[in-house]
């Protein structure tokens, strides 16, 4: 069993899609824990399985293998009805795509839905609650009667946040909550999330491909590549050790013309991302790959306190630096 300090813990979690013969793993043998009250960042390129992982944690998808614990309970095998009983404690903020809301619903219907499902309230109480929530995310009650297509991208994103936070959940998965919006809104939304966490002690899984945003709000950062965890950084500013994390960080563009990027590209380019038949999933693109990497897949090992890396050359940190 997981210890009580963890909000969420997963062990050997895998999710495969497709028919028996041509299974494709979106998430492969993933184990980690999210402590209560922390923001865990999950980064990776599109198609690396990070959204699938987020949905698995909330059991919006059924895992192929592995175990999921939520606040100490094993929820892996929970039925739809059993999950319903605890869904008020876990929520998800979806990417603000056009499909994030039922097109026939007004903001009032969108936000009141979770409340009606879990709290006994009358219309007046609900309206007061919703108005309060909307104000927290920087909107007001005049938005209640609008349809989602009448909102701008940033307003929609905030309605999504209001829907997720209105029940005061313990655990929130933010799936690309700031990725498709412009910088002004990005700042506002990051602030809202951070404030809510500070006030209410929420635990977040913050999924994004935006390294800058992740570094700004997260306590720890987990890096995924093709369904596998490559590295877990114990803090946002920790030095990246895995070649893939280094490549990702090198790709972040500093908003300062005086800081010129030194290294250009730290990985090999490949047209399509495919899981290699054997070895480390990253070897086809890794600049340091050797024979070993092509045949044996590395385990995720703790290098320093809380710093996990899945790379053969992490036993000896120098090896990598010399190679570089």
């Amino acid at each position: 069993m997981s210890d009580s300090g963890n909000m969420v813990e997963v062990k050997g979690l895998s999710k495969a899609y497709g028919q028996r013969r041509q299974e494709k793993y979106a998430v492969y043998n993933v184990s980690f824990a999210i402590c209560k009250g922390e923001i865990l960042g999950l980064v990776g390129e599109s198609g690396c399985g990070k959204s699938t992982l987020g949905r698995l944690l909330l059991r919006l998808e059924r895992p192929t293998k592995g175990e999921i614990y939520f606040d100490g309970q094993d929820i892996t095998g929970y039925s739809f009805t059993e999950m319903r009983k605890i869904r008020d404690r876990m929520q998800m903020i979806f990417q603000s795509s056009a499909n994030a809301f039922n097109p026939y619903y007004t903001v009032r219907q969108i936000i009141s839905e979770p409340v009606m499902n879990y709290r006994k309230t009358d219309a007046g109480e609900r309206d007061a609650l919703m108005t309060e929530m909307l104000e927290k995310v920087g909107l007001d009650s005049s938005y209640l009667n609008r349809y989602s297509h009448e909102l701008s991208g940033g307003q929609r994103q905030r309605v999504g946040i209001a829907r997720a936070l209105i029940l005061g959940p313990d655990f929130v998965v933010c799936d690309e909550a700031v990725s498709s919006i412009d910088f002004v809104l990005k700042k506002q939304i990051l602030k809202i999330l951070a404030e809510q966490k500070k006030k209410n002690g929420f635990t977040y899984l913050f999924i994004s491909h935006d390294m800058a945003a992740v570094k700004a709000v997260c306590d720890r950062i987990m890096v995924m590549y093709l369904g596998n965890i490559m590295e877990i950084l114990p803090e946002a500013e920790a030095k990246a050790l895995h070649p893939y994390t280094q490549a990702l960080l090198a790709a972040v563009l500093e908003p300062d013309p005086n800081v010129k990027r030194e290294k250009k590209i730290l990985f090999k380019e490949s047209g399509e991302l495919a899981i290699p038949e054997a070895g480390c999933v990253f070897w086809p693109r890794c600049l340091y790959a050797t024979e070993t990497c092509m045949h044996r897949s590395p385990e995720l090992r703790e290098i320093y306190d809380g710093h996990f890396v899945a790379c053969h050359y992490m036993k000896n940190k120098r090896t990598l630096e010399e190679n570089a």
Partner: peptide
């Protein structure tokens, strides 16, 4: 779609 998944996450019955 996300909104159907969101409905499940919001605790809606089948």
């Amino acid at each position: 779609t996300e909104f159907v998944m969101a409905a499940e996450a919001a605790g809606c019955s089948r």
